[in-house]
Every structure is written in C-alpha cells, then in structure tokens.
Design a protein around this nucleic acid. Structure first.
Ligand SMILES: Nc1nc2c(ncn2[C@H]2C[C@H](O)[C@@H](COP(=O)(O)OP(=O)(O)OP(=O)(O)O)O2)c(=O)[nH]1
Ligand SMILES: [Mg+2]
Ligand SMILES: [Mg+2]
Ligand SMILES: [Zn+2]
Length: 792
DNA sequence: GCCGTTTTCGGCCCGACTGTTTTCAGTCG
C-alpha cells in the first residue's frame, strides 16, 4: 500500500514549499491531503484505479493528477523540482522544536546553514546573531532543542499515556483553588497513540499564577517549555510533553472543547460558528455584533455545540470523519414552530405566475431564497425536533434541494430532471450489496453517476454531455454516506448527504409542463408533504461503554503462553461481573508460544469444561476455545474435526504478516469462510506503533465476515488495537458484529479492555454492534447460530 | 491548492507565548 509514502510525500512538499515562502493555504492544502492519505482505510492505488481521486474531499484536480503520476512512475516531477530547490540538510533543521519554515529560510538563505551540524557550529561561533529576527535567546533555545528532534517515535501508546495523565489530573485537582481538571487532546479522543498530554484546568483567574507555580514544582516536570498566565507546557523526565491550560470555570467547557480537538474538528465547528455570526474560541461562544462581542456560553461543552445547532459530539468521534454532518443532522431542538401561518404568509407573497426567461426567474429565485431557508428552519425544528437547520448547505439539504429544485426546476431549465436525477438508495440495499456495488450498477445504467452533493451535482451539470442523463445516488435514511461505503467516491463521502427519510425524485414532481402556472399551490403542497411527515426518532448516539461489556472472549492460560490457570482467569472474569468468557490458548503452529498439539488440546478442553461446570453455578459461562492460527494460505491450524470439538474459535494471523495485500485479503476471507470460526482475532496482526501487519482490502474481509455471519475482533491490548478505528467504522457500517477482547495473558491484562472500547467508540460503535455487550441469552443464541452453521 | 446555495473568485479558525518586532511575526496548541 502506497498510502503512507504518498502521505509523507505531500507532508514533505508542504514543508519545503513553506520554507520557499509559498502561500500558506497551498501549504495547508497539501498537509490536509497528507492527513487524508494517511488515515484512508483503503488502498489509494486500488481507489485510483476504480474511482476519481478528485472526489476525495480536499483533493482537487491538481493533486489527483499528481497522485496518479506518483502511482504510475513513483515520482511527481513538479515535486522533484521543488525538492531540488532546497537541500535535504536544510529541511532537517525544521525538525527542531520552535524552528519553523520562516526560521529555516533565514538560517539557510542569510546564514548559510544547510545542515544540523553546520547550525550547531554556527551557533557556537556566534555568526548567526544579527540575522533578521534572530537573537541570542532564540539561538540558545534552538541549541537546547536540538536534543528533542521530532521523530516518528515521538508518540506513545495510549496505554502508557493514560495512567500518567490520570495521575496528573488528580494532582491538579488537589491543588488549592482548582475547581476542575480534565485530560483532553488525543487521549480523551481515545486515539491509539498520543503525541502529548493535554489538560484543561478550571480556576478563577486570580489563582492561575499560584496553580502554575504548584505545577512547575511537581516532581515529574523535567523542563519547562513555556509558561504564561493561562498556559504552561513542560516535558517530563521521560520526555513526554504535557500542555496545561488554565481558564475560569465559566470557560471550562469551551476550553475542554478546544483542547479535545481534533484540530480538524475544531476548524469545522468554528467555521460553522462564523457562518452563523458567532465566534468560538477556548474562552467561550460569542455573538459578533460589528466591533462588539457578546458572550453567550462556554461553561460546558454542550453550550458550545448547542450554540451552533449541533448535537454534542462524543470526543472519540471528533476527527472530522463525518461527525460534524452527523451532529448537524441530529441538531438541537430549540425553536418552536409557527409553520402554518408562516407558510401561508410566505406563499401568499409568491407570484402566481413565474415569468419566463432565465434572468427574471433568477431574480425571483434570489429574492425568495432567504425566506425559504428561514421557513425551513422553523418548519423543520418543529416537526423534526432533533433536526435543526443550520445555515447553508447541510443536513436539511434534501429539503432545500426539494424546494430549490421546485424553484430552479421552473426557473432554470438546465437544472431540471432532463439531465440529472436523484436516486434514493435505502440502507438495507447498501448493507446487502455494498455501496461500491450499487455505484457500479448505477454506472452501468446511466451516462454519469455521482453521490449526493451539491458540488458534485454542479460539476455533473457541466460534464454531462448534451442529450445524456445522469444519476446521483442519495442515501436515504439517517446516517448519510460514509467514506468507507463509497470508497471515497464522492465528496458526500464525508457525510454531506442524508438526513430524514424523505425520498425524493426531482423527476417525479416536475415533469409536467403546466407546473409553472399554479406554482404556489404546488409548492405549498410539497412543503406540507415534507414537514408534516412523522418525525423520525433520532437521538444523539450512545456509543458503547466499558460498563456495557459482559464478557471477554479471548484469553490465554499457562497451557500456552499465559501466566495464570484456567481457574484464575475465570475467577477474574467473574470478579469483573462478566457473564461469559472463553479460554483460547494458542494452536500447534505457535510453538514459540507453547501452542497446543491436538492431544494436549483435547485434555485442555476437558480441563476447561471441568472449570466451566463449577463456574456455571456462580453464574458465568466458560467456553472451551482456541486461538487458532490462520496460516499464510488462509487455512486453519487445526483440522475441522478438531475445531468441531471447541465451543469457541478465535482465528488469528500470527506469522507471514508481510505478505502482499491480495494474499492477505484471500487469507482472511478464506479463514472467515470456515464455518467453525466464530471471530477473526487481531485481523491485521499489527503492533502499535511499529509493525504495520497485514494490509488486506478490509472492505472485502468485512463483507466476507458479513456473508459468513462471523464476528471481527477489536483486540483491546494497546499494543494491538486491531481492528483499528477506521476499520471498526467500516464493520459498523456493514453491521458485522464486533468482539472487544483483551487477549489477556495474565490478570492485569484485563484492564486493557478500555482501550478496545475507546477504539470501538472511535468507530462509532454502539453497544448493539458489540457481540460481547449482549446479554448472556442473546450471546448464547448467536453462538447457537454459529454452531448450526458449522454442523450444516 | 481547494471549495462552493454570494459558485470560477476570493476566502480559508482562533488564540497563547516568546522574542526583539518599537508594534508584531513566528511557532505552536
Ligand atoms: N482551533 C484549533 N485548535 C487546535 C489547533 N491545534 C491544536 N488544537 C487543539 C486541538 C487539539 O486536539 C488540542 C491539542 O493539541 P495537540 O497538538 O496536543 O494535538 P492532539 O492532542 O489532538 O494530538 P497529539 O496526540 O497530541 O499529537 O489543541 C489549531 O490549529 N486550531
Ligand atoms: Mg495532544
Ligand atoms: Mg498538546
Ligand atoms: Zn491471543
């Protein structure tokens, strides 16, 4: 997979261009593309073959071409030229903290510095002092910071960061006059790796200095990076950076929201605020009235999201992966409705006859547009109380589309149904066939196809040749397209589309010729038909929680490489209140882990069943299982007749983890097809952060799991977290059951469960998606289904 | 460079801390 190297390429070119003084927005555009490529769950090369990269949000014509060029030739000529302008040694300098592109440019152009070594030497001989903006202090800092060069190893696993953060938060809460403290940043979002620890503190302004002082004296503080009245950053002796932000209690919610991020999420949220005449920062939400600002909230996170009409987004979802659109769609329920009278009043103002000719029609369109939007706001918030209109172009898109199409369809012939038709696609079709398949079907059936999105449609209108027709896929239902579903086919992939269950075809409504004459009537009728509809129940999402977990279905004992007996592991599960668990020691090929040969396995099953019998009385179901190795070709490490003797089969890959993507896909798909398998354990075999593991076409693996009715594991151990967050989202979208297992080898390992839960939450999983969140009876019935499949 | 209901130009989130800037740029969160 070339995603990572392409991401690096764009990241690097962004840095080099910044040194060359290029427009910062272009630099940021490249950085955004780098992030997109890095986080893309599928293979960019496969995507480029089947779909247009231009439809990926953030990637335009220019970059799509460059990516294509790279995939063909392994190079981007324009980038090579750019790299040629700045020696590699110069770029190394930018890895020093506090040294950014401007400083690099000056050191290089005016100071003749072209490597880290030269920089060191020139700082020593004093020849750099006097360069523009560079003095003794700055150079001293640079010299110190050369010990902290940015490296990819700079991130630590969440399991290592969390305990440190919790302890620091406890300490801060114990400091006098501290009202509240909360860790934020990537840690609160539950990311698998953590760059630094971010903590927000609530305290009256007058106490901030004292709190800062107490913090600076804390024993873990090895080096203060910076410290001002509201913000202190330091490094611990272990080299971990900690950022602490102190704000007054009335700003605590705003500060937590800001500090939790992600950056990309914050930017989206703040952009929405701007469009609504508001301003959001870490101090609160403000109404902007010319020069003056009026504070309207900030004590809680809810106040922030509420102010802009968004549902509060769970921290783990805040990655700008569609959650903003989701939150708009959920909305808040505030304004009451006066729909009928408003409606009548508005409609009575509409002209009885639409003038012919585009310019006159345009003028009317412009004149009424704000009124329509305002009306929709009122109408929607009353009849669909959880869905609230937020400014332009978002969740009520289909409603706006409907009305605007009504207007435009009459005013503006080119945008009517002759060329472009909306095709609603129901959720069950998507889960049955997969979005890609539907898209391809549509492609075969028509001349042009896209998913639902204003920009895409606008382009479509231009690109559809005269006399041809196009279709755009609109996802009916509550959740909108996801990137995974469309495989980044359309801009809507980030979630522009979809909200209520309105299914609408422009064609159906506006094909009759006489429509223009009784337009107001028609319009009213249409509007009623939408807003009077039964409102769907949509509550803000309840993601799975640690307390929902009712069992652990992957653990080891002394029989293989664990350190506890069956009894000890079961007792711990019981202690945790689990209703079921599975003992799954390694299979025979895992000889280095003392994997069990068949005869030992048979004895082990007996031993587990003996413990199970005891355990049953104390109310916990114990399954005799195995973690069966998936061999390189996808076959399993035990024969089927052996597998049939087990109550529970986790099949996981352990060796040959560097095989080609296609081989990996086949391997996992084949394993998933074995009817004895219950769940695929740590499907990629990756190790965080260093080993990439298998890179299968995860969509195919997930479909295979769906076809065969098996589950996929989130291995909760913070060294694995496999499935990873983006893969979880794909599994959730496909409705494949997910097991969150600790893979415990000893008692403390059970504590890893939380990291699996956080990863599940990052994939938008609710308890309903998690197999081991089901009550015992339900779990048993699922298992029975599996056993029947195996017997059949 | 990307994007779009102000649509092919013109805007792109917002603020703290530091140093050397006599009024704010650079870097970072
Ligand atoms: N509005 C806004 N907020 C930002 C920006 N940069 C960072 N933040 C906020 C959101 C981040 O989650 C939070 C903490 O910054 P960090 O650099 O520590 O990032 P984060 O913790 O998300 O990831 P990390 O694991 O530390 O690399 O500060 C920015 O440019 N604008
Ligand atoms: Mg952080
Ligand atoms: Mg930070
Ligand atoms: Zn295991």
């Amino acid at each position: 997979m070339k995603n990572a190297e392409l991401a690096k390429l764009f990241e690097h070119v962004a840095d080099v261009l910044a040194v060359l003084g290029e427009n910062v927005f272009r630099v940021n555009a490249y950085k955004k593309i780098a992030r997109t490529l890095d986080e893309m769950p599928g293979d960019i090369e496969a995507l480029a073959k089947t779909e247009s990269l231009e439809d990926v949000p953030g990637i335009g014509k220019a970059s799509a071409e460059k990516i294509g060029e790279y995939l063909r030739t392994g190079k981007v000529r324009e980038f090579e030229d750019i790299f040629g302008q700045v020696p590699a040694g110069v770029m190394e300098i930018m890895r020093i903290p506090t040294v950014g592109p401007k400083t690099v440019a000056i050191l290089w152009n005016e100071g003749g510095v072209n490597s880290l070594e030269k920089l060191k030497a020139k700082i020593e001989d004093g020849s750099l002092i006097g360069l523009p903006g560079i003095g003794a202090k700055k150079l001293e800092k640079i010299k110190e910071n050369m010990a902290f060069l940015a490296t990819s190893a700079g991130r630590i696993r969440i399991g290592e960061a969390l305990p440190i953060a919790v302890e620091l938060v406890e300490f801060l809460k114990s400091v006098k006059d501290v009202k509240n403290a909360q860790y934020c940043g990537s840690l609160r979002r539950g990311k698998e790796t953590i760059g630094d620890v971010d903590i927000a503190v609530a305290a009256e302004e007058t106490f901030a200095a004292a709190i800062n002082e107490a913090l600076r004296k804390h024993q873990v503080v090895a080096q203060i990076i910076q410290s001002g009245p509201s913000k202190t950053s330091f490094r611990t002796s272990a080299g971990l950076q900690v950022d602490v932000r102190i704000v007054p209690p009335e700003s605590f919610g705003a500060a937590v929201q800001y500090f939790t991020g992600s950056k990309e999420h914050n930017v989206r949220v703040r952009e929405i605020a701007v469009k609504k005449g508001l301003k959001i920062n870490e101090w609160g939400v403000f109404k902007v009235k010319g020069e003056k600002e009026e504070r309207i909230g900030g004590a809680t996170e809810e106040e922030i999201y509420d102010a802009i009409g968004l549902a509060t987004v769970p921290p783990e979802m805040r990655e700008d992966r569609g959650e903003v659109e989701w939150a708009i769609e959920q909305g808040t329920s505030t304004s009451g409705g006066r729909i009928e009278s408003e409606l009548e009043r508005f409609v009575s103002k509409l002209p009885q006859r639409i003038p012919s000719g585009n310019s006159a029609a345009d003028a009317i369109h412009r004149q009424y547009r704000p009124e329509i939007l305002r009306l929709l706001d009122i109408g929607y918030s009353k009849y669909l109380p959880k869905v609230r209109w937020v400014d332009m172009g978002n969740s009520n898109q289909e409603l706006v589309d409907a009305f605007e199409a009504a207007l435009v369809g009459i005013f503006d012939p080119p945008l009517n149904s002759q060329k472009l038709m909306r095709l609603s696609v129901a959720e069950d079709l998507i889960s049955r066939y997969g979005a890609q398949q539907l898209y391809k079907e549509a492609q075969n059936a028509t001349d042009w196809v896209s998913c639902d999105n204003a920009g895409a449609r606008a382009r479509a209108l231009k690109s559809i040749p005269k006399g041809k027709r196009g279709v755009y896929l609109f996802k009916a239902g509550s959740s909108g397209w996801t990137q995974q579903q469309l495989g980044y086919i359309g801009k809507a992939a980030v979630g522009k589309a979809g909200s209520s269950d309105i299914r609408y075809r422009i064609k159906d409504h506006f094909d009759d010729e006489s429509r223009a004459d009784n337009f107001p009537d028609k319009f009213l009728q249409l509007l009623r038909s939408f807003v009077m509809r039964e409102s769907p129940q949509c509550y803000a999402i309840e993601l799975v929680e640690l307390a929902d977990i009712r069992g652990d279905l992957h653990m080891h004992t002394v029989a293989s490489d664990g350190v506890c007996s069956i009894e000890e592991m079961v007792a711990e599960c019981k202690r945790r209140g689990y209703q079921y668990c599975a003992i799954t020691d390694h299979s025979k090929s895992q000889f280095q882990a003392n994997g069990l040969k068949v005869d030992r396995l048979m004895d082990h099953i007996k031993a587990i069943h003996a413990v199970a019998k005891e355990a049953e009385r104390s109310g916990i179901l114990v399954l005799a299982g195995s973690e069966v190795d998936i061999l390189a070709d996808g076959s399993l490490d035990y024969e089927d007749d052996v597998l049939a003797k087990l109550d529970w089969v986790v099949a996981s890959p352990h060796a040959a983890l560097t095989q080609e993507s296609d081989a990996a896909t086949q391997r996992l798909v084949r394993a998933a097809a074995n009817p004895h398998v219950c769940v695929i354990g740590h499907p990629t075999g990756r190790i965080v952060p260093s080993r990439r593991g298998l890179e299968p076409d995860m969509q195919k693996v997930i479909f295979a799991a769906a076809r065969n009715g098996i589950a996929l594991e989130i291995n909760a151990n913070c060294y694995r977290l496999d499935l990873r967050d983006t893969h979880v989202k794909m599994a959730v979208d496909a409705n494949v059951p997910i097991c969150i297992n600790t893979d415990a080898h000893g008692i403390p390992d059970f504590d890893q469960m939380i990291y699996g839960v956080l990863t599940a939450r990052r994939g938008w999983a609710t308890a309903a998606h998690i197999l081991n969140a089901r009550p015992l009876a339900e779990f048993k019935s699922w298992l029975k289904g599996r056993k029947e499949a195996a017997a059949w």
